[in-house]
Amino acid sequence: MSSAAVPGQRSVFRRLSAWLFAKRRTKLGFLLGPPMLWMAIVYLGALAVLFLTAFWRQDPLTAEVTRQWGIQNFKTLADGEVYRTIALRTAGIAAATTIICVILAIPISYYAARIAKPRTRTILLLAVVLPLWSSYLVRLYSWRVILSGNGFLNWSLEKLGFGSLSISYSNWSILIVFVYLWLPYVVLPVYAAFERIPDSLFEASADLGSKWPKTFRRVVLPMALPGIVAGSIFSFSLTLGDYIVPQLVGNTQFIGNVIYQSVGVANNVPFAAAYATVPVAVMALYLLGARKMGAFEAL
């Protein structure tokens, strides 16, 4: 063994590992300490500052943050009709995106898991994952170009004889782009859920006299539900936290746009922090529901 040539160094390692082996707590501390310290300081610390900042306020004269406690930010949010509308629109489009993603994910996942030959399945899965590796912003930008008035979409529709649409810069284009961006995140867990259902259940259901539609409704969907809910967490959360898509292909505001402008334009960090607690609360409720449906085991 080569390290036997340097006995001094070897014995140091040896003594260190013997010492660590005996002291499992210390070893655990060495392993767990750095990542947990990082997460506690950088992430939990940041979240704590976020919640603190939400209760501070911006001095109206100097535009500086003053550390003076109060709930005026939340009062502004509760009183402002516009903030409620924006929050409801954000959650509504997030829910619509999620439902459409699930509907689109079912045929391709089912086909890959149950019908396709192994080789086709590999290619299909690769084809679904590949867009995730190319830039979010580039994929969004391509839709901005396609949806524009004299762009690819309207040209194709006119060639097919459907006439042109004027959906650029609308909630429709926001919805299309969100579905496009998050669809792969939904397909993967749904595919995994279909894949896990044993063949024997399909046969049993058929033997008991069920035709395919009934088998799908009564056996496949209930068994795949945790996977479907797991996939929906991604599309819902990602839509809830996005402000780039509404800004680039839409003409309406999302929660994120208000936050981004409060920070970037008005420099009102406390108000932005207060509004950011809304998606946290919505997401907490969603995750609680998802856990009840067993989605965490399917992740």
């Binding site: 976020l50 959360s237 932005a272």
Partner: peptide
């Protein structure tokens, strides 16, 4: 804890870090 920054909406992680950097 590790998955939280990805599971929470991006705007929350961004805003939390922004508030923390300001602080």
């Amino acid at each position: 804890l590790l998955v939280l920054p990805l599971a929470l909406p991006g705007i929350v992680t961004g805003m939390a870090l922004n508030a923390a950097i300001n602080f």
